[in-house]
Design a protein around this nucleic acid. Structure first.
Lengths: 346, 346
DNA sequence: CTTGGCACTCGGGTTCGGCGAGTGCCAGGG
DNA sequence: CCCTGGCACTCGCCGAACCCGAGTGCCAAG
């Protein structure tokens, strides 16, 4: 018995089912694919595949559909990604090249992904856990208020308004703040965010007597900023595509939309996929069906890839019904992630 | 013929249809409402209401459902908003009181609205068209880069990284920038954004010879920031509620989701509602059904209210199927907008 | 103006076969 | 040993016929 042919049959079933959305039978299979054998032979193969859990039949006398396990085997061993056409590559590049800043890059990327895959897209903001402080600025803005701005070397900016309640000499405050800013910068510039947080205590200790209170207030706010900077963010787009492609998964559509709005869930998802990606975190990672059930995403598959300048900073990908076109989706995710990485390294 | 009773009949039809989602007949009406007359009488009234275009029947022999015109009459003359219970008020207040900054207020508000109305919620960021510049800061961040930060008196912050390509003396750059910052602030602080943009040209003209190029670059970036600051933004939440409440409007759900993702469309919608609101822009404004068709929102109604500290800064509201529960929705929108306004004035 | 009666309409749900796709099994041939 | 054609069987889907009942419009009487 040819093991190869059985795999070919599984591949054919997946491809047909994805394109027609209908259970596929042995006869239709031999007609649409040049398998070189008769339907009866295919039937035997299908019986074995069903035995092993790769396919299943919805009702007794209907065609077979792939199971999650079948899709898994398909993406792991059978799928050969379809390279994008030159025209598509040019379109991607042109669309992303117009971006003016980090926010714009992320925004364009997520829209682009949603558009070319016709599914829901997710982009995680470049992770700051490895980011370092580039500069801290402290701007008096009248009264007891000051604006605290934190800039990281990944180009992200966090800001916060600080109320300096303990200031006793408002006229002298701007100078105090300027001095404080210089000391803070000397202490944390170039350091990773986490480490920077630890350095802050030293800054307050080294402050001239009578100004500790002000310094403590500002430093506390900066601490919050550093923590907030570590906080991950995601952006999504293309949710409308879910209702189109997944007219069948309409039952679970509600819960999927709900999960998508809870960015915490998405962050967790992205996190998990980064971890199971193993050594090469920039490689494609695919989650299929029930593997996402614990996140409130039933009948849903997710394809992500790491991206970033040089090292992997974050992940991006798309999310759609289990019966998605994996080869094209994976190719698109990979292509976009590469272009984004390239853009970011400029 | 009693005109009052006909209105009562219309009100009863709207209420019943909203709660059951099924066409309502004359018999069911007299049973569920104490109208004091027989079904036959109701039938006559219904015939008149249909004649005048307030109700319609889906098929020849079925009950009646309200038309857009019927809903319009209902919200304009028949709806008495149901005041929120003390418990609900406390919940709203508690939820909003936890907010730490403007972004957080907006985020919490939109989630809250979606949750209590069980529909999709929209919150427009406080409008900056009337906002004034509080401060402009210019921070050198190494090499030819500088960070430009624009703070408005509404608490919003815009930032942008500027590449100073024309600088010929990098060591002197920080000082140049500091001087430039002071001149810019003198020129635009306290001015409205639009007016500030016009003042910028004067700043470049008044620059010392040899530094015009740098000044021009920075001022150009600031101009973009001011323009971006004028740009309106909206936040949405609760899209998942649409698929629940609108299992019936499933046909148009795709286009509605699409429109919701296009923030431009929502801005336009909010803008239009603000304009037609007339004198009292803080009052509730309701758009029903086909009135939103040109925005790609079929079978959709929108309820919004202006909000803001003192004057109306922006709008918030909810969006759902035409057959929504207007009285409770309107009461919720009004309550939330008042609480948000109160929070913002602190 | 309201009321009860009455004939009529028509959409929705149900039942019932027929059709066809698809299967599993088996015996025969390479 | 594997492939093949044949054959009986199973069900889900589809269309037709059908009934039922809610709802209506009209009319004559109070």
């Amino acid at each position: 018995m040819s093991d190869d042919r059985r795999l070919a049959v599984l591949r054919a079933i997946v491809e047909d089912y994805v394109s027609t959305h209908e259970p596929v039978g042995s006869k239709a299979l031999v007609e649409r694919h040049r398998l070189g054998v008769s339907p009866a032979t295919i039937r035997n193969d299908m019986a074995v595949l069903e035995e092993e859990g790769y396919i299943a039949q919805p009702h007794t006398s209907a065609g077979r559909i792939p199971t999650d396990k079948g899709y898994r085997l398909f993406v792991d061993r059978l799928a050969n990604l379809k390279p994008m056409s030159p025209a598509e590559r040019r379109a991607i590049q042109a669309f992303l090249d117009g971006a003016v800043d980090l926010d714009d890059v992320v925004d364009r990327t997520v829209r682009l992904l949603a558009q070319i895959t016709r599914q829901a897209a997710v982009v995680q903001y470049p992770s700051l856990s490895r980011a370092a402080v580039r500069h801290v600025e402290l701007v008096p803005v009248g009264g007891r208020s000051a604006l605290l701005v934190l800039i990281t070397d990944t180009g992200r900016v966090e800001q916060r308004v600080v109320q300096v309640r303990s200031a006793d000499d408002l006229d002298a405050l701007p100078e105090q703040l300027a001095a404080l800013r210089d000391r803070v910068n000397a202490a944390v510039a170039g350091k990773r965010l986490k480490q920077a947080r630890e350095e802050l205590a030293g800054v307050v200790r080294a402050t001239a007597p009578g100004q500790e209170a002000v310094a403590a207030e500002v430093v506390a706010a900066l601490g919050e900023c550093l923590t907030a900077g570590l906080e991950e963010r995601v952006v999504i787009a293309g949710t409308a595509n879910l209702v189109r492609s997944g007219a069948d998964l309409s039952a679970s559509l509600g819960s999927v939309l709900e999960a998508l709005e809870e960015h915490v869930v998405l962050l967790r998802l992205v996190q998990e996929m980064a971890e199971e990606g193993g050594a090469d975190r920039g490689a494609l990672s695919v989650r299929i069906g029930a593997e996402n059930l614990h996140l409130g995403l039933p009948e849903t598959s997710v394809v992500t890839s790491g991206y970033g300048e040089g090292e992997v900073l974050a992940r991006l990908g798309v999310l759609g019904p289990t019966r998605m076109d994996y080869p094209t989706t994976m190719a698109a995710v990979r292509a976009v992630s590469r272009y984004v990485s390239r853009i970011l390294s400029q």
